[in-house]
């Protein structure tokens, strides 16, 4: 497990990561956390205290929406899925993040 970036950076990127996770398929909160962990190669684990408020923020922005659906055990579970505006936001946020990373990378390697 690697140290996580500072809170403000994590908070900004967490929204992006959740959008990325949901771009694959609709999933419930626990599954989103597990998918993020899996995507990071088990190097990052998102606490519920950050995950659920982040999901709620995305819902409030209209980037994701929720729906109560039955799971494999036929139990009603709250699934989240991307909205079209969420899809657009994912593209824009990912591009923005990439630019930011490139910029930091360039700056760090400037001699």
């Amino acid at each position: 497990m690697v140290p996580l970036p500072p809170n403000d950076i994590l908070r900004g990127t967490l929204d992006l990561l959740i959008l990325k996770a949901l771009s694959l398929e609709p999933m419930h909160g626990w599954a989103i956390g597990r998918r993020l962990e899996q995507m990071s190669g088990a190097t990052m684990r998102v606490g519920q205290g950050s995950l659920y408020p982040a999901i709620q923020r995305l819902v409030e922005k209209g980037w994701i929406e929720s729906d109560w659906r039955p799971n494999e055990q036929n139990r009603k579970v709250k699934y989240y899925m991307l909205t079209p505006s969420g899809q657009r936001a994912l593209g824009e946020e990912a591009a923005s993040w990439q630019r930011y990373v490139d910029m930091v990378h360039v700056m760090l390697h400037t001699t």
Binding site: Q48, G49, S50, Y52, P53, A54, Q56, R57, E60
Partner: peptide
């Protein structure tokens, strides 16, 4: 605490 976080995130 998680619930409070969610409530705070609501509009």
């Amino acid at each position: 605490k998680h619930k409070e976080g969610v409530r705070d995130a609501r509009t």
